[in-house]
């Protein structure tokens, strides 16, 4: 690492940071996607039930009985919110991916222009 210039060392540190940020975003996105799938599935499940079917939703630490249309609305809202969050995360992911590729290119160019430097790392 001693033979690598401070600038490249800094770029490597930034690359690692971007990589960690990307990982966090991907994990969050996967969680939201799973929650959205689950909510859509719950919507499908209740669609087949009669309007007066007994349904409960969790409110704090208790489950309260709700009407079918209320449950449906809440689920639709949940799906909408989750999809918005997923879109926002996708934007961040794209931005970070671009940054990652740019840094990767810069580091590669710097190291290739300076043979032997990484071997001291």
């Amino acid at each position: 690492m001693n033979n690598i210039s401070p600038k490249v060392q800094n770029q490597i540190a930034m690359l690692q940071q971007v990589q960690q940020q990307l990982q966090t975003i991907l994990t969050q996105k996967a969680q939201y996607e799973m929650a959205a799938r689950e909510a859509k599935r719950a919507q499908e499940e209740i669609a087949d039930l009669p309007d007066d079917a007994a349904m409960y939703m969790s409110v704090g630490s208790v489950m309260m009985q709700k009407k079918k249309d209320v449950v449906n609305t809440k689920l639709a809202e949940k799906v909408e919110t989750l999809e918005l969050r997923i879109k926002s995360l996708e934007k961040q992911e794209k931005m970070l991916q671009g940054k990652f590729e740019q840094l990767q290119g810069q580091i590669k160019a710097a190291l290739e222009g300076k043979p032997g430097a990484p071997s001291a790392a």
Binding site: A39, R41, E45, I46, L49, V71
Partner: peptide, 12 residues
């Protein structure tokens, strides 16, 4: 039977 069908929704 009260069944959790996901998203904190329970149906009979």
């Amino acid at each position: 039977i009260l069944l959790n069908i996901g998203s904190d929704v329970i149906v009979e």
